[in-house]
C-alpha cells in the first residue's frame, strides 16, 4: 500500500516538473519582469542591479532550479499588481473557491448519481425521458449562459437570491467560510448550480450508461435468479459495479470544477482564485499566474492519487499483489 502511494507520487513528479517548466517559461517569455518592476524611468545601473537581484543573469537551469525549490516551499515572490506575497493572496482566495467547488461537486454527485440510477432502471418512464432531455441542456449550454440565465430568473425577476459576491463570511483562523451565515449560504446557491450543472448531467449520463451495461451482466441475472430483492440487486450488486468508472470521471470532474471555476467566479464576481487569476491575466501578473497553474496541477495530481486509492477500496481484483498472475 505504502509502496503503491510512493510509486504514484514518483510518477506525478515529472508532471509537476513539466507544469513548473511552463510556469517558469512565462516569466521569461510573457512580458519582461524587469521592465514591469522598474516602471518608466530607470538607469542602466538600476536595471543591472535588479537583474542581478532577481538572478536573471544566471544560466537557465540555475534559475529554473531556484524556481522549483521556491515553489515547493510555496514561495512565488510578490505579485506585480498588488505587491503582496503571492502565497498570501492565494491563501486568502482559496476558501471561496474550495467552498464553491465543494458545493458544486456535492450537488453533482448527490443529485447526478440517483438520477443516473433512476434513468438506468426505468429507461422508458416519462421522468427518465425528462431527465435525459434536461441533461442535454446541461451538457450543451455554456456555463456563463447558465449563470446569466439563473441570475436573470432568481435575482432579477424573482429577487430571491443574490447575484454576486459571497455574502457575509466568518473568519476561522485564516479560512473564511460562507457556511455559517444565512447570506453566505444563499450566495452559494446560484454559483454552485452554475458550476455543478455540467458535471451533474455528465455524472448522470455516465451512471445511466454504466447501469444499463451492468444490468445486462450474468452476475445481475444470477442475483435475480437467486431471488434477491430488487433493492439489493440494484443498489448493492449493480450500483457498486458502476462505481469504478464513476469514481474516475467524478474525480477528474472535481479537478475540472476547481479549474474551471474561473468562468463562474467571473459571472458571479465570486472572490475566489479563479477571479484572482483572471485579474492577474489582465495585468500580466505572472507570479500569480504561475502559482495558480502549479496549484491546479497539484490538485489534479492529488485527485488522481485519491481516485486510485478508492479503486483499491472498491474493487478487490486490484488488490491482487503486483506481478502475481491471476488464478486460472
Amino acid at each position: 500500500m505504502f509502496a503503491f502511494i510512493l510509486s504514484r507520487i514518483l510518477q506525478a513528479l515529472p508532471v509537476m516538473l513539466t507544469v513548473a517548466l511552463i510556469s517558469f517559461a512565462m516569466f521569461a517569455y510573457v512580458g519582461d519582469p524587469v521592465a514591469i518592476m522598474l516602471g518608466q524611468d530607470f538607469t542602466e545601473a538600476q536595471r543591472d542591479a535588479l537583474v542581478r537581484e532577481l538572478g536573471l543573469d544566471q544560466p537557465f537551469f540555475v534559475q529554473f532550479a531556484k524556481f522549483v525549490v521556491n515553489a515547493a516551499q510555496g514561495e512565488f515572490g510578490l505579485s506585480y499588481r498588488l505587491s503582496r506575497p503571492v502565497a498570501e493572496l492565494i491563501a486568502e482566495r482559496a476558501p471561496a473557491t474550495l467552498e464553491l467547488a465543494f458545493c458544486a461537486a456535492a450537488l453533482a454527485l448527490l443529485v447526478g448519481v440517483p438520477m443516473g440510477v433512476y434513468t438506468g432502471l426505468y429507461r422508458n418512464s416519462w421522468l427518465s425521458r425528462f431527465f435525459l432531455t434536461f441533461s442535454l441542456i446541461g451538457v450543451s449550454l455554456p456555463t456563463f449562459l447558465i449563470g446569466i440565465l439563473l441570475i436573470l430568473i432568481f435575482s432579477v425577476w424573482l429577487g430571491w437570491l443574490p447575484s454576486f459576491g459571497r455574502g457575509d463570511v466568518v473568519q476561522l483562523g485564516w479560512w473564511s467560510t460562507g457556511f455559517l451565515t444565512w447570506s453566505g449560504i444563499r450566495a452559494l446557491i446560484l454559483p454552485s448550480i452554475t458550476l455543478g450543472l455540467f458535471q451533474l448531467t455528465l455524472i448522470m449520463r455516465l451512471v445511466r450508461a454504466e447501469m444499463l451495461e451492468v444490468l445486462r451482466t450474468d452476475y445481475i441475472k444470477f442475483a435475480r435468479a437467486r431471488g434477491l430483492p430488487n433493492r439489493a440487486v440494484h443498489f448493492g450488486h449493480a450500483l457498486k459495479n458502476t462505481l469504478v468508472p464513476v469514481i474516475t470521471i467524478a474525480g477528474l470532474q472535481l479537478g475540472a470544477i476547481i479549474a474551471f471555476a474561473i468562468v463562474t467566479e467571473t459571472v458571479f464576481q465570486w472572490p475566489g482564485m479563479g477571479l484572482l487569476f483572471i485579474q492577474s491575466v489582465n495585468a500580466a501578473d505572472i507570479p500569480v499566474m504561475a502559482a495558480y497553474l502549479l496549484l491546479i496541477a497539484l490538485v489534479f495530481v492529488v485527485i488522481n492519487l485519491v481516485v486510485d486509492l478508492l479503486y483499491y477500496a472498491v474493487d478487490p481484483r486490484l488488490r491482487v499483489e503486483r506481478g502475481a498472475v491471476r488464478g486460472a
Partner: peptide, 15 residues
Amino acid sequence: GAIFQDPLTTLNPLY
C-alpha cells in the same frame, strides 16, 4: 434454483 453456463461471469466480482 438456477446454474448458469459461465462461472467466470456469474459471480459478482466485488463481493
